[in-house]
Design a protein around this nucleic acid. Structure first.
Lengths: 239, 239
DNA sequence: CGTCTCATTGAAACTCCTCAAAGGGCGTGG
DNA sequence: CCACGCCCTTTGAGGAGTTTCAATGAGACG
């Protein structure tokens, strides 16, 4: 059930069978979430964290005039709001972009984890630090990359993250996002996303159509994006 | 010596005298860092974390063409790279923007902390989650706010963070940054920062000149910025 | 007092946005 | 099973915000 979460965890850290059962024991219940549901609203008191089992979710903030900025996309296996364990309230909203299946992890079980499992605590601390690293890479994109490069970078990032949980290969991956969703990730308008996608397509690098990303020239795409996967910390680390 | 760090910690969490001594015991040495020194380079193996005692530091990333994006500014009392404890290598560089005094905290002492002090561990986990919250707010700025609002927001953020460690009051604060530094924080050019500063000044909101931020109309500034300090988690939380 | 960096200003160019409209795909209901 | 409606995608034209290039001014430091 939480297999993808274990995949992404094992990819970066070595965990004992006993620790795996401790992770299994974190989950209290599994729930289905319809697409376009805002699961958690900024500011509300939270008592459990959410692990994404299937589907795509995001963290987003918006301005009074309705403009929205997605701060991070979440793929299956991700802990979407592990940080709510220490923050108690979030500074952002959490929404399901597609129909999702999530596992709920009560904060008191995480509390117990920090008391009894220092190694797993460090692993989960690492996990929130990885989210921060993704935020930083997005800051670089939003601040300094132009539209085409920004888009290329996001498609590379998703490729790496989905591949880690077996949901992408060299040919491409399924991505049930609209061009408006991409716009909200990249600080652009849907219209400009459309034009930028065309540029990438006409350059023979990648096609995004009917919810599928087809990679035609991964090296070229990474070149345009100046993509270096180091920020995803894909190498095993002993924490 | 680490008084500002204790100030910002006490502002958000209650800690016992015994925990305070544990924090004191983290520091191995204090070091001076000249302005414009890159202390830590992306990718290198790190064995200690850096606590900022005095001066301003930043985390930054850059692109091949030399464009730079600052991902976060650090004020005295901040742990600049606490996340290097779990990540081991950083995805970004760390630079002193002004002459700085820093305290070095060996990772093995943090490791011991996670084994013996779960409460302090949660407090420091919180601290890295707070950095992530600041990153998210910057993503919102970079993606969706226009130049003037972005600048106003940063000046509000720094006011709140500096006030927390007693380095800002209602009148303003000292800020030893150049307009180019601000440009690198905000994803703009120095020229445009200059024009935007003029707009804020002529609107009677704030003046930034000779390293001083003078707040003339805090309410107005917050309005322009759409500034809500919630993302700084200034309220006490029991973790 | 000269030098260097930082700040300031103007004019032109460019990227991306806004507004608008038409074209496609898919599910639902008649 | 087709038609309708709805949302998403695509394209065009004009406009706004920001950048680039260039030059001058001001302040700090040796």
């Amino acid at each position: 059930m939480i297999e993808k979460h274990l995949m992404r965890t094992r990819a970066r850290h070595s965990i004992t069978p006993e620790e795996e059962s401790a992770i299994h024991a974190l989950v209290r219940e599994v729930r289905e979430v319809p697409a376009r549901t805002t699961l958690i609203h900024a500011g509300e008191r939270i008592h459990h964290s959410t692990m994404l089992l299937d589907g795509l979710m995001c963290r987003y903030k918006d301005l009074k005039d309705g403009q929205r900025q997605i701060a991070e996309l979440h793929v299956p296996g991700d802990f979407v709001d592990l940080h709510s364990f220490s923050l108690k309230r979030l500074d952002h909203n959490i929404m399901a972009l597609t129909p999702c299946r999530v596992a709920l992890v009560p904060h008191d079980r995480l509390q117990a984890l920090t008391e009894n499992h220092p190694h797993l605590t460090r692993i989960y601390w690492f996990s929130t630090n990885l989210d921060a690293a993704i935020h930083r890479e997005w800051e670089l994109s939003l601040g300094r990359r132009d539209a085409v490069s920004r888009l290329a970078h996001l498609l590379c990032e998703l490729h790496s993250r989905l591949a880690l949980v077996g949901m992408a290969d060299d040919a491409g991956y399924r991505l049930k996002l609209t061009q408006s969703d991409l716009a909200e990730c990249l600080g652009l308008t849907p219209v400009h996303i459309n034009r930028s996608l065309r540029q990438l397509r006409e350059a023979g690098l990648v096609t995004f159509r009917s919810s599928k990303v087809e990679l035609h020239d991964m090296a070229g795409l990474r070149g345009v994006a100046e993509f270096d996967p180091a920020f995803l910390y894909l190498e095993p680390v002993e924490v």
